[in-house]
Design a binder for these strands. Structure first.
Length: 242
DNA sequence: AGTCATGTTGACGA
DNA sequence: CTCGTCAACATGAC
C-alpha cells in the first residue's frame, strides 16, 4: 500500500466521492465521527504517503503506515478504522492512523516537497541535501521533508538505477550524481505508479528483494543501513560508495 | 506455517 | 538535552 504512488492511486479511485455529502461515519477511529456527518468532501488530496480528505474548514489526514488497506464499496472482517458512507457508495479504511487537521490544509503541507506533486521542486530538494552533508543518501531519500512519498522500495530502486551505494554520504557524492538522486526519486515514483496500475510492479523491481545483480551476476547485499535502519538491497560491485 | 515487510511515533536509557 | 535503540501498532504475501 503505502508509498506515495499507492496513495495517488487511492486518491484517484475515490474521485467520484468528491462533492458528495457524508451520510454516515463509523469505525474505531478516535476522531469525532459525528462531526463528519453532513459535511461535503471538497477534495481528496495526497501529500507524500498521506491521504487527505478535505472538508470546509478541516481535513482528515490518513496514513496507511505499513499495513493499511482500504476498500471502496466493499467491506472485510477486519476492524474498521473509519468508514464513510456517501449516496453513491462508501469508503472503508483499515489499519491506518487518522488525525484531524484544522483550517486550511495548505498551511500544513509544502506541496513542493512531494515528489509526485505538480509543484515538486527539484532545486529545493538540492538545497536541503546540501544542508545535510553528513547524512547518508539512504536516509536522505527516506526523509519525507525532502522526498515526500519516497519509501523503501523507491529508495532501493533509485539507488540501483543510478549505481549509487546507499551508505554514500551526501557531502562526498558528486553534484551530477546528486541531481540524478533527485530526478530519479520523482521519475521512479511515476514508473511505480504506472506499473502498479498495470499490476506489474514487482516484476519491474531490479534491486528490491533481489538476490543476484542482473547487471554483473554477483550477489546482491541485503543490509540494514543508515540511521533509519531500513533494509537496503544493493550491489556492492555496481553501486559506487562515495 | 513461519517469516518478513511498501512506516512512523514515542518511550527509555546512556 | 540529545542521540541511539527499541517496542508498539497491526496484516497479508510468500
Amino acid at each position: 500500500m503505502p508509498e506515495g504512488p499507492s496513495i495517488v492511486i487511492l486518491k484517484e479511485e475515490v474521485q467520484h466521492f468528491t462533492n458528495q455529502k457524508v451520510i454516515a461515519a463509523e469505525g474505531n477511529s478516535s476522531i469525532d465521527k459525528d462531526r463528519l456527518v453532513g459535511q461535503t468532501v471538497i477534495a481528496f488530496k495526497s501529500w507524500g504517503k498521506n491521504f487527505l480528505i478535505c472538508f470546509d474548514g478541516f481535513s482528515l489526514r490518513v496514513h496507511l503506515m505499513l499495513f493499511g488497506t482500504y476498500l471502496i464499496n466493499n467491506r472485510k472482517e477486519a476492524q474498521l478504522r473509519l468508514g464513510l458512507q456517501f449516496n453513491n457508495g462508501e469508503l472503508n479504511l483499515y489499519t491506518c492512523q487518522i488525525d484531524v487537521v484544522e483550517g486550511d490544509i495548505n498551511n500544513y503541507y509544502d506541496w513542493s516537497a512531494d515528489v509526485m506533486n505538480d509543484n515538486w521542486n527539484a532545486e529545493l530538494a538540492m538545497k536541503k541535501l546540501k544542508e545535510n552533508p553528513d547524512v547518508m543518501v539512504c536516509d536522505a531519500l527516506l526523509d519525507q521533508e525532502i522526498f515526500g512519498g519516497v519509501g523503501n522500495i523507491i529508495k532501493n530502486e533509485v539507488l540501483y538505477r543510478i549505481f549509487l551505494h546507499p551508505e554514500s554520504k551526501l557531502e562526498n557524492i558528486p553534484k551530477e550524481k546528486l541531481e540524478e538522486v533527485i530526478s530519479q526519486a520523482s521519475a521512479y515514483a511515476f514508473d511505480f505508479l504506472k506499473w502498479k496500475k498495470e499490476n506489474v510492479l514487482k516484476q519491474h523491481w531490479l534491486a528490491h528483494t533481489k538476490k543476484i545483480c542482473l547487471r554483473c551476476d554477483l550477489p546482491m547485499h541485503k543490509e540494514v543501513t543508515g540511521k533509519k535502519r531500513r533494509n537496503s538491497y544493493f550491489c556492492p560491485n555496481c553501486q559506487v560508495l562515495y
